[in-house]
């Protein structure tokens, strides 16, 4: 198998909450190759952001407990890094565009001071920038993400910007650092499609020119289809399907993936589908066996008792569902 830039192995995580724990990640496995764009899609609340925060090591230690698993970045285990190594890792190797731009920006500081702060750390201490260089760098970063009037934006506070403008500020800040892996958590939700298009083009260019890899998380399946090479589908804390992106959309296998893709509203105008029946599982007492079984229309007896392993259907397609187990398939790792 080719070398991976990032490999997450059997990641298990629970949140400690008042009166119990939420078993959110239940053995997450995935990998990102060098210069690879991967997509992660899945239900609201299935643990996508949690997984990314675990990789960045920015989860609150007292509430988020990792009970098992490895996160290998260039073969080093991120979970075993000491504080100094983590700092360096975050400044030089990995960067994340956060889902909620309002929460990611500090409301009491101007955009300028927040960007300058990023510049200060991302450029290291070795080269000192003049005031002008710093301002030029910040202005350029903002115009790179198609923000009109960067000079005004620098002086503004987050509240004075529209939702999409705040999002682009966050993208600009993430791109200022040197990096090998960019995690983009819903980078397009509050942008109109023409700007979205241009920003995704910008991300694509980064992959081509700088040779970085990208993890793109999005509910907009059309975007995932257009720019990623491979896609993982996540449900209730684990990966249920992985395939070459084109293959996933032309031939989804897992019942959840099928339901998800069928829920996308179409331009042809056939009305709104009913969505997948049932509710998101309760993480304090998740279903046994396959976590999707209470909502699945193909449930078999084994689904209720045993968690399905990741089965290889073809070189480019894997699925975690008992429907795809063939006689003689070896179960277990």
């Amino acid at each position: 198998m080719e070398k991976s830039l990032l490999e997450v192995k059997d990641l298990n995580l629970h949140y400690v909450v008042f009166g119990g724990s939420l078993k959110v990640l239940d053995g997450v496995n995935f990998r990102v190759g060098f210069k690879e764009n991967i997509g992660i899609v899945g239900e609201t609340g299935c643990g996508k952001t949690t997984t990314m925060k675990a990789i960045m090591r920015i989860l609150g230690m007292t509430t988020a407990k990792i009970s098992k698993g490895e996160i290998l970045f260039k073969e080093r285990d991120v979970l075993k890094m000491n504080e100094a190594e983590v700092q360096k890792f975050r400044r030089r190797e990995i960067s994340m565009i956060f889902q909620d731009p309002t929460a990611a920006l500090n409301p009491v500081f101007s955009i300028k001071s927040q960007i300058y702060n990023v510049i200060k750390y991302s450029q290291g201490t070795e080269k000192k920038l003049t005031k002008k260089e710093r301002k030029d760098l910040a202005t350029k970063a903002l115009s790179d993400v198609m923000l009109p009037d960067p000079e005004r934006v620098l002086e503004n506070y987050p509240i004075q910007l529209s939702g999409g403008m705040r999002q682009r500020v966050c993208i600009a800040m993430a791109l200022l650092s040197d990096l090998d892996l960019l995690i983009a958590d819903e980078p397009g939700t509050s942008l109109d499609v023409t700007i979205q298009d241009q920003i995704l083009e910008l991300l694509n260019e980064l992959v081509r020119k700088k040779g970085i890899s990208i993890i793109l998380i999005s509910h907009a399946l059309g975007i995932i289809k257009n720019i990623t090479h491979r896609t993982y589908v996540m449900y209730a804390g684990f990966m249920i399907e992985a395939a070459k992106t084109t293959e996933l959309f032309s031939n989804p296998l897992h019942p959840y993936s099928k339901g998800l893709i069928a829920s996308v509203p179409t331009l042809v105008g056939r009305g709104i589908s009913n969505g997948i029946p049932g509710h998101i599982p309760n993480y304090s007492n998740p279903p046994l066996g396959c976590r999707f079984h209470p909502r699945c229309s193909y449930t078999m007896p084994i689904c209720k008792v045993e968690k399905p392993p990741f089965l290889t259907v073809s070189d480019t397609h894997q699925v975690a569902c008992w429907l795809f187990k063939k006689e003689g398939d070896k179960i277990g790792k």
Partner: peptide, 11 residues
């Protein structure tokens, strides 16, 4: 619904 998955959006 822009922050939600398409199945929940549909609902």
């Amino acid at each position: 619904t822009s922050a939600l998955d398409v199945s929940i959006q549909a609902k």
